[in-house]
């Protein structure tokens, strides 16, 4: 794998993770302040922009590599998002949830390696 490929895979993964965190925060706030405010709209727009970047980077990667090669990296998103949600959004990450997320990540990697 070239450095360029690694860079694009990482960029796609991180923009996807970031988008999830932004969107989660946007939707949480709708409980209190509803949908018609600038903060909600800008967060959703930001989340969509990040997902769009991630999407096109992945489409570019799919033209060069097999889906089975790219999938292990998507598997990593499970554990990264769980950790980031706990750190950034202060969600309660129990030991059981952590082990569950680790097993799912490991399983996805195994599935796509074979």
């Amino acid at each position: 794998m070239t450095f360029l490929a690694f860079f694009f895979i990482l960029s796609s993964l991180l923009s996807f993770v970031w988008a999830q965190l932004v969107l989660k925060r946007a939707m949480e706030n709708t409980q209190k302040s509803g949908f018609r405010n600038l903060r909600f709209i800008s967060r959703v727009a930001g989340g969509i922009a990040l997902m769009t970047i991630s999407f096109f980077l992945m489409l570019g990667l799919l033209q060069r590599f097999d889906l089975s090669y790219l999938y292990p990296f998507q598997g990593l998103s499970v554990i990264i998002i769980s950790l980031m949600a706990a750190v950034m959004l202060k969600e309660k990450l129990t030991l059981q949830l952590t082990i569950g997320a680790l097993l799912i990540s490991a399983g996805i990697v195994l599935v796509s390696l074979s």
Binding site: Q20, K24, M27, V78, A85, L97
Partner: peptide, 11 residues
């Protein structure tokens, strides 16, 4: 996302 925590919904 409005109803379920990310640590549960995403996995």
């Amino acid at each position: 996302l409005k109803y379920i925590p990310l640590v549960i919904a995403f996995p």
